[in-house]
Design a protein around this nucleic acid. Structure first.
Lengths: 142, 142
DNA sequence: AATTTCATGCAACGTTGTTGCATTTGTGTT
DNA sequence: AACACAAATGCAACAACGTTGCATGAAATT
């Protein structure tokens, strides 16, 4: 996992701009999957279209991946490092807390191999877990 | 699995209206998860708000469930029968075909029990498989 | 058949996804 | 250090979708 925003942009051949660096910093601090609207709120002022395109570019280039969490709001999280322009490797599970609404990447939890049912060919498998996260269970968060 | 639309409405204490019956008939014939916009196209003429509320009501009452398929378009499918106003039991996997875009319920494929990681409490587990469906593999569909 | 309860249709609004275009900014080159 | 080119940004604009309020019409209950 790359640690510095500048490094990440270099690795993916992306120009070093203010918005991109800021977005990466937010992701690096967050350690969870974030929605575009959440990101927007982290800025004093930012153009939502720029943010939209930043996320789209990041996803295409393999910097972030979409975290499937069962809600209607797409969320994104930093890729672990093996992702690039050509392929994503985000086959870990995602956990959505019904209490605080946060979505976590469970890097350690990889989807098991499934045999293709009904004559289908399975290319990818994703898992979505829902429940209550540790912090909410402990009553730390509302 | 109930077979007649009228029966389904009765079972869930829902009024027998034209739109609801029509929607149920489409679902019964489809045997796959459908989006609201697809449903809209099946009608000569229908109010999208009515359709929206119909789906919402059906979901709340346990007639249909949301099929998580990794796309941005929510899709719905008939519940197998054990669902009601209080709880859904749609823990089977869903398969999304990247070719034709259809989403299938894999009733026979139930999410395995997962132990809760990081001190989280897992209430539900969903699986989303993507790939190519049988029909597309066989070249029947475009 | 009358009454009540609920579904419908329409207006309306907010949010989000998306594109085009002019301007600004980053980056490799002179 | 200045230049030139390509790419990112900011803004306008629009489409699609989710959502609510309200008046009207249809179902179920008596």
């Amino acid at each position: 996992m790359q640690l510095r925003p500048e490094q990440i942009l270099n690795d993916h051949q992306l120009r070093r701009t203010a918005v991109r660096l800021a977005v990466l910093r937010i992701f690096l601090e967050a350690d969870e999957a974030l929605s575009q609207s959440y990101l927007e709120q982290q800025f004093e002022q930012v153009d939502r279209i720029t943010l939209y395109r930043t996320l789209r570019t990041f996803e295409q280039k393999g910097v972030i991946h979409r975290a499937l969490d069962g809600t209607d709001t797409p969320k994104y999280a930093l890729c672990a490092g093996e992702c690039n322009e050509h392929a994503h490797h985000d086959h870990h599970a995602h956990f959505h807390c019904d209490d605080c609404g946060r979505t976590y990447c469970l890097e350690e939890m990889v989807a098991p191999r499934f045999h293709a049912p009904r004559g289908f060919r399975v290319d990818e498998a994703h898992m979505v877990l829902t429940g209550v996260c540790k912090e909410c269970l402990e009553g730390v968060s509302p």
